[in-house]
Amino acid sequence: MEIAIQYITNALSVGGTYALLALGLAIVFGILGFINFAHGEIMTICGYVLFYAMAIGLPFWFAIIIGVIMAGVAAVIMERIAFRPLRGANPMSLLIAGFALSGALQISFLVFLGERPKPVPMPEYFTGAIKIGGIYIGVVQVISIAVTIVAVFALNLFLKRTKFGISLLAAAEDFSIARLMGIRANAIFSGTFAISGLLAGIAGVLWLAQRGSVSYTMGFTPLIKAFIATIIGGMGSLTGAVLGGFLLGALEIVFQIILPSEQLIFRDPIVLFFLIAVLLFRPGGLIQEKKESMR
């Protein structure tokens, strides 16, 4: 029983991280219509900022805030430099641009910040376990789950209750009409990327809390899985992205348990394969777009 609950909290905390990443991808896709391939690098940037902020002696929580904010800023800059010149191009061009950007960023990290992973020390109370109802659960897991819930809830509030959030939703519904209604396109682009960057930053912090070090490829593997989570969830559907993220986390933990340790390298391939197999039966993802296929 205790082990089962520990596994479930593991699955939820890992899944939550994927969910936040997938959410960042889905919000850009839902509003702007393309996938930001360099999304994982935003997560990496957050990790490096965190590392250097702590290296110069800033307190942990302050470093986290700076890291997450910088992730948002990095995303906005990314949009300005790489994607804005291509606005209006087809989604595939934008995806390739992100792909190229991702490669360039990874190489920059590698060349300028070094190849070896940089350890980000977590405070001691992070690494312990707490006792809930007689069962020990890792603090990191609990915090991850809590942060995911809070982030998703806050995003929901922001989108539904603030003026800017509502205009983002309107843009997701129909960008050109939203513009006609007086919503500024540039604001939408920057705002969307800022939110997506913040989400990636939070995901980056959670990832670091679970892994403990940042390297130039930190964002790469989780991103691939977040990609798949967004497709599985249904492209552009926010609920779907969260769902896909948690499904992914669950699958990962399941295979972590059933695979013998020397076969663990096959965990990611099997999970991805499983998810692609889902697409065979539901090409549109779990949450299908409500719009009828009509022109």
Partner: peptide
Amino acid sequence: NTSAIIATFSLLVIS
């Protein structure tokens, strides 16, 4: 579109 491209990418990771 995008789903297809991303799915091809996951093939790369799987292999």
